[in-house]
Amino acid sequence: MIAAVRHPVFVGAVAAIVAACAGLLLAAGAGTSPAVAVDALVEGMTGTPYAIGSSLNTAAVLALIAAGFTVAYRAGLVNVGGEGQLCVGGVTGAAAGLALPQGVPGWIGVPVVLIAGFAGGAAWASIAGLLKAKRGTSEVITTLLLNFVGAGVLALAVHEEALLRQPVTSAETLPQSAPLPPGARLPLIGSIESPATLIVVLAVAAALIVALVLRHTPTGLRLTAVGHSPAASARLGLGVARLEVGGLAVAGGLAGAAGACLVATAPYVLAEHFSSGYGFTGLVVGLLARGSLTAVLAIALLFGLLTNGGINLQLAAGVPAASVQVVQSLLVLLIAASMIWTRKGAR
């Protein structure tokens, strides 16, 4: 009986109900009846092809970051630097895309942007990885602090004409890059009314490949061993430093690729706040999924839906979108707190 009550799925469901009730209370506080609020939320999540498409795009960005987080986490490393890696990946992706000629075909342009984004994010994360492997510096601290540096790199790139800023023609020229050439933009998938792009396919593919590598290859098992016991892994001849740097580089690479995808999605420019905190939300998705790639996809989808539903909640029902963030945060707190409880039950 008690074992059933402590089951993670049950706990998750209770947490979701509690968080949803809190959300409805907040909506009521903003003067909106629960029925209207729920209607607006659902409308924003899945009400139109546009809503579905943008929810999927958001979910895909989160899933890419969370899949990377899971790789590093398997090696015992907590990557808190998704946001910075995403910014740097956006910068390198944009730089590569803008360097291409206007008439570049899509089968060259898109991979170039994605690979450049991956490389940028991977290099950014490798700084923390090398510091960890060579000097033992905590990756939690270094990746966290590199977020701010990454955001600075982004700001510099879009403000300096010598870097990526579009040619300044008047005082009103925005600090952002010129639009990417058409061949470097992510193609839409599905219907013309839906903004869903190739990133959705990429995210699902990335989750599948990560799951396969972690579960069924020697590399996955080595990462797991390093995550459990670096000392024993070193004794047994594994390249612990290489695996740690590699794990963190893949995490950064996937976040960087997500950044490049964001730049290659409408309006196809690199702007200072193109991320809107995806790096941190992706980290939360990764933490909640606790190593399961199925959970990564499911939670990323839930968060993607909630984010877009929240925007519509504000537009249609007049409830501040921040109330959805409150619900998300509450969900995280409840699940994190219940982990202690479920673990106690298992003992």
Binding site: L221, T224, A225, H228, S229, A231, A232, S233, R235
Partner: peptide, 12 residues
């Protein structure tokens, strides 16, 4: 600490 990884299986 060094001899084995207790969480992993015997074969590994």
């Amino acid at each position: 600490h060094e001899g084995c990884v207790p969480e992993l299986d015997v074969a590994t």
